[in-house]
Design a protein around this nucleic acid. Structure first.
Ligand SMILES: [Mn+2]
Ligand SMILES: [Mn+2]
Ligand SMILES: [Zn+2]
Ligand SMILES: [Zn+2]
Lengths: 143, 143
DNA sequence: ACCTTAATTGGATTGATTCCGTTTTGTAAA
DNA sequence: TTTACAAAACGGAATCAATCCAATTAAGGT
């Protein structure tokens, strides 16, 4: 999934092309790590000083619905990253300092299938948290 | 782990015994499902009308630190339940309507061990979400 | 009973997220 | 290329969970 594919996805679902949306995707794409809404806003305001929080949240919500970004939450804040692979389902090891990830190819649900009764399964979450090599020590996280 | 053990844990760590703390544990114990701070407050105010949010949050935070309750988060709200078993590590299938759980005995970390390099692991989360038998359909969740 | 300190209160504050009326902009039709 | 209309963005207010704080109350040891 690249920028063009994502923009096509927007168009296919009747959303308009705007330079703000393109920049937002650009940011997610080049950072390729989990970002909070505030981090996205800060980066976007370098190009669009008056940009509103509402624009960030509205577009993130659209992006998430279309599968362009995927979200999670830690330290009481939601974070989002470019959906790294739309074909194969997998999970992540996440650095809680800088939001960078490593992939876990296995999904524990495969071992669970058939197990749960009396529950209509709607989703699952498997994440490993830690500190990446660049962030360990006292120094500020390198992005 | 029962009420007495939990109260002993408090005492052992130098916290005072109060009827509010006992009631709070009582509630977690008899509900044995995930509760939000607001739900705990509402139930406690039946006995202590003037009870403050701060008391709920402060005590939850102490309970979590001592391992008396365990917390998670969904729909943008933190929730807590009595720590169901202090000896064996396991995970849960959670009903996102009523907060009741079923146990998953396996932990996917066992299969991962040895895998991750360049990451100092600090924690992990494996949860399956769904709707329990009592909550499915249109009717209100039965607690 | 008294003293010291922790616990609780109640109200203010923070901070993330959502909401909303107004203005601007993208896009398709004329 | 203009025009028209709906969607997007703006800016600021509102919401809501969670935290903070100064003043009061209560627990537990002496
Ligand atoms: Mn990935
Ligand atoms: Mn359990
Ligand atoms: Zn890192
Ligand atoms: Zn349920």
């Amino acid at each position: 999934m690249d920028l063009k594919q994502a923009l096509d996805l927007l168009k296919k679902h009747g959303y308009k092309y705007t330079n703000k949306r393109e920049l937002m995707m650009d940011i997610f794409l080049r950072e390729s790590r989990y970002l909070s809404a505030r981090e996205v806003l800060d980066q976007m305001q370098e190009d669009f000083p008056g940009l509103s929080f509402d624009t960030v949240y509205r577009n993130i919500s659209i992006f998430e619905k279309l599968g362009i970004v995927e979200g999670t939450e830690w330290d009481g804040e939601r974070r989002y990253r470019f959906h790294c692979n739309r074909d194969t389902h997998h999970h992540h090891i996440i650095c809680t300092k800088c939001g960078r990830t490593r992939e876990i190819r296995v999904c524990p649900m495969n071992a669970i299938l058939g197990e749960p009764d009396n529950f209509e399964i709607t989703g699952h979450k498997f994440e490993i948290y830690g500190i990446c090599a660049d962030c360990e020590g006292d120094h500020a996280p390198r992005h």
